[in-house]
Design a binder for these strands. Structure first.
Lengths: 176, 176
DNA sequence: ACCTGAACACCGTTCAAGT
DNA sequence: ACCTGAACACCGTTCAAGT
């Protein structure tokens, strides 16, 4: 797991192959299949580890500030490793909603007193915003640091303004 | 182009390889490189063709209803072909914003009289919502039709409720 | 201009065999 | 239990050579 994340962070997702990881570990590729059934499972484990390493204590009390906090933690966790956003988003799209923060977000919206169906709609909307923004941001950051692009993308400020758009929508529906 | 989309729709993105497309066309793989510099370019062209085939006339007059209309057109276009959402989202993440509907969305928000920076934030938020929802919906639909899953995901109703959340946020900021 | 044939440098995964 | 060695069935891409 440690070596997988190290290879990912140093050489990128396209270089995180079973063969390369095996070489890095000084082992034959086939040896990996005694610890993991296939590559997708390996990548899911990497995604979970990235999220676990990004975990922080909750501070906010209000449900909406807590939702923003979870979104920031998620973004920061993904940005902490090269191609982290892609890895997490792909893992999420496989095991729909299994990955950690979805549950915490859902809980926050529920605590806000929103009706059940809106909790679902709102949670997915926030997750999609975080994922979309962060993949775009990370791609642009990496392209910029490679000199392939001249502009820099919207950072935390733009990120939060996007979140506020849907939180406005949610707040106006509390108790509705 | 026609054969590429046909192969995609019949066998899925993972089967749309240069070698397979070549075989389908009765030609050697190397022959494709006289029409396209690499696979990514081919996939971008496929994405553009999928969007072009989904193009519909604009009906709505109001800027916010027009934005919803563009989002629906985008979703429908992607859902029309197997793995269409993945192909379009990937292409988008490479040539950031070059793909068609982003401009139309941007134009709609601008017509709404929103300040320039909010136009950018809002456009990206809507795009990310459409992409996130549609990839999730299509993945679940395909998993369900393969019998791999029992539930069905949120369709057009949930889709539109998500959009309305951010449109509420945007409307409340018109003239602000 | 467009294509073939052959090669290069890779993939993920399986499986008998070893210790 | 954990690993090796060897193979299977693929990839994207390049390039000299043909028409």
């Amino acid at each position: 797991m440690d070596r997988a994340i190290a290879v990912l962070d140093e050489y990128g997702l396209e270089s995180l192959t079973m063969r390369r990881l095996a070489t890095d570990l000084g082992v034959q590729p086939s040896a990996l299949y005694h610890h993991v059934p296939n590559k997708q499972t390996l990548l899911t484990a990497v995604a979970e580890e990235i999220l676990a390493r990004g975990r922080r204590p909750r501070r906010a009390g209000e449900w909406d500030r807590r939702a923003v906090e979870v979104c920031h933690e998620l973004r920061d966790a993904m940005l902490a490793y090269r191609d982290g956003a892609e890895v997490v988003v792909t893992a999420y799209s496989f095991g729909l909603g299994t990955v950690g923060p979805a549950g915490e977000l859902r809980e926050a919206l529920r605590d806000g007193g929103l009706p059940d169906d809106l909790v679902g709609v709102g949670t997915r909307a926030l997750l999609h915003l975080v994922f979309g923004h962060t993949v775009e941001e990370q791609t642009a950051l990496q392209a910029a640091s490679a000199g392939a692009i001249d502009w820099t993308p919207g950072g935390p400020a733009d990120f939060e303004r996007g979140l506020e758009l849907v939180l406005d929508g949610l707040r106006s529906r509390v108790g509705g």
